[in-house]
Design a protein around this nucleic acid. Structure first.
Length: 555
RNA sequence: GCUCCCGUGGUGAAACGGAUAUCACAGCAGUCUUCGGAACUGCUAUUCCAGGUUCGAAUCCUGGCGGGAGCACCA
């Protein structure tokens, strides 16, 4: 059934008889002319067997014998063994893509309880572009694990206490503006932050407010706090809807803080944490890491203590098998210390925890919207891109141009984030993202809309979609067949960029095919071509879903 | 100063130690009696430097140069 598995089985047998100590793995040749699958095993083991690579390759091929679903095996280059899938194998793939709900899915993480923490914005502050990056990557990783059969829960951890909150409340008191107005909250925070740095009077007042927020001792401040917090959180919720994220769990610093403190205090006796200059620290230096403060000299928990507490809070809510935490890469070093401490306190949880750091998004200064001033927030970026896409959307076939413009804007940003390796800084080029040409999210969306249109047109013309098992496999079909392998590898390596790069190459192949091939040409061959377009449509849609990008049917 | 990450055409990126280093943008030259031109075709142009490991290095190791992040009471 599965041709790749047949190849691996045949290779394993051949390796065993030839005494080659390798588990049979396959790769996709970069160039399709080098086949659908390939192995470089003969190159790797030529030396130890005392043969020339091509000689060994000959032996492997001879031992492997005839393999089901394969039309051709050849030895090429220095000693690669290339496998070409047979037309009927592609026919089966196309049928599967068109009919199976599980096309592209795998069971590598079947039933594994998986929690992914990402986004983590702070109420009372703006949703900045860093949150956009975290959200995009976290959502895509979540979806990759859904496709791998895992039981995935999405978690968001929001900083609802701390000095930033006090600053915003101080600003609200000064301005007298409504805490129900998100923009006013933003202004209040900006004013508070400025005053906190500039003025000593304000500084003292903010410190006082901060304490009052913690112990809820002042009714007026409680009121501003509660209303402002709700405004912020509701606003974030609206953004999550636009971005296509739905969280299962929300955690707050106001809960993780006290619990984290408890955990730290409980582990002073056993020597995990130590007093130092009035603070409570973890001596990472003894393990080649930094020494980090977990409780400051006022006894308040820092980020490290909170995240430590959070790991346990998550587990109590959802006893996970694996936990992923997506954050910016500026906290890589802290996270190492955190994991070391966690390993002493909750060793079982530490083993299950993986930090997924991502790079910073850098904007090309001066090119962004001037409407919003100097501060480019996550939402202003999307608003700016939506507006730029709107004109084009109005001329489109879409029923709701505003909705389409937003879908395109989100696709443009998300693709820019996901197209490259997680961890490297992202240079956001507004022109490139919006040009909607070539290497972009909207380019993939457009290929999908085209495929959708042709399938609808075929239906109107009553051209039935039928896979022809003898049809010569096209470039589109051959790339399409790679989809499940790509998805698998992307999840295994936590690399959504593999899916993004694949989709653009696949969409490009489809566009090329579309330009050179008259699909509804009135001949019997049209049936197969419509089926191929249909399988392409489905694969693009699923692939975009894995990136967290919508696939509009018309644009 | 120490630690970590990075250095690929003019620009932004890809390449799980493997085949002629791939793609997009920009530039130049083309395609349209066509199912959707947000498309397609062609041309120009790339692995920071010096050693080393390997049958084979953009990828691994050492050193240098250049850029970024972090280096206890923020997250």
């Amino acid at each position: 059934m599965d041709a790749a598995q047949s190849i691996r089985d045949a290779l394993s047998r051949a390796f065993q008889t030839l005494g080659i100590p390798e588990e049979a793995t396959l790769e996709h040749p970069g160039e399709l002319e080098n086949g659908d699958y390939a192995t470089g095993a003969a190159l790797r083991h030529a030396k130890q067997t005392g043969m020339k690579p091509r000689e060994l390759a000959e032996k492997i091929v001879a031992e492997a014998g005839k393999i089901g679903g394969i039309s051709k095996v050849e030895i090429a280059g220095a000693g690669f063994i290339n496998f070409y899938l047979a037309p009927e194998t592609f026919a089966a793939v196309l049928e599967e893509a068109r009919s199976s709900d599980t096309w592209g899915a795998n069971e590598n993480e079947k039933g594994k309880k998986t929690i992914v923490e990402y986004t983590d914005p702070n109420p009372f502050k703006e949703f900045h572009i860093g949150h956009l990056v975290t959200n995009t990557i976290g959502e895509s990783i979540s979806r990759l694990f859904v496709y791998a059969g895992a039981d995935v829960k999405r978690a968001n951890y929001q900083g609802d206490v701390g000095r930033h909150v006090a600053r915003a409340i101080w600003g609200l008191i000064q301005s007298g503006e409504s805490p129900e107005d998100v923009k006013a909250l933003g202004r209040a925070y900006a004013a508070g932050a400025k005053a906190d740095i500039d003025g000593s009077v304000a500084k003292a007042e903010i410190t006082a407010i901060n304490r009052e927020v913690y112990d809820r001792s002042d009714e007026k401040i409680n009121d501003l706090y509660d209303r402002g917090r709700k405004t912020s959180l509701d606003h974030f919720e609206m953004l999550y809807a636009i971005l296509g994220t739905k969280f299962d769990f929300y955690f707050f610093e106001s809960e993780a803080g006290p619990f984290g403190k408890e955990v730290v205090l409980a582990h002073i006796k056993d020597g995990v944490f130590k007093e130092s200059d009035g603070a409570t620290v973890y001596e990472g230096e003894k393990k080649g890491l930094h020494t980090r403060v977990f409780l400051n000299s006022e006894g308040l928990p820092t980020y490290e203590a909170k995240e430590l507490g959070l790991s346990k809070m998550k587990y109590e809510k959802f006893p996970y098998d694996q936990s992923f935490i997506v954050t910016g890469n500026e906290i890589i070093e802290y996270f190492k210390v955190l994991l070391a401490a966690m390993n002493d306190v909750f060793p079982d949880l530490a083993k299950k925890t993986t930090h997924v750091p991502h790079g910073m998004m850098r904007l090309e200064v001066g090119k962004m919207s001037s409407r919003t001033g100097n501060v480019i927030t996550g939402e202003s970026l999307i608003a700016d891109l939506s507006e730029a896409a709107r004109e084009r959307a109005k001329e489109s076939r879409a029923e709701d141009a505003d909705r389409l413009a937003e879908q395109i804007a989100v696709a443009a940003v998300k693709y820019q984030i996901l197209r490259q390796a997680t961890g490297k800084d992202i240079i956001f080029n507004r022109e490139q993202a919006l040009s909607l040409e070539g290497d972009s999210g909207p380019y993939i969306q457009y290929a999908h809309a085209r495929a959708q249109a042709i399938v609808e047109k075929a239906r109107e013309q009553k051209v039935e979609a039928n896979v022809n098992p003898a049809a010569e496999p096209s470039e589109v079909a051959r790339l399409l067949a790679r989809f499940p392998d790509i998805v698998e590898r992307a999840a295994k390596n936590l690399e959504p960029q593999l899916v993004a790069n694949y989709l653009v190459a696949f969409a490009s192949a489809f566009n090329r095919w579309y330009a050179n091939e008259h699909i509804l040409d009135g001949t019997p061959a049209a049936s197969h071509k419509v089926a191929l377009a249909d399988a392409t449509r489905i694969t693009l849609k699923k692939g975009l879903w894995l990136l967290g990008i919508e696939a509009p049917e018309r644009m």
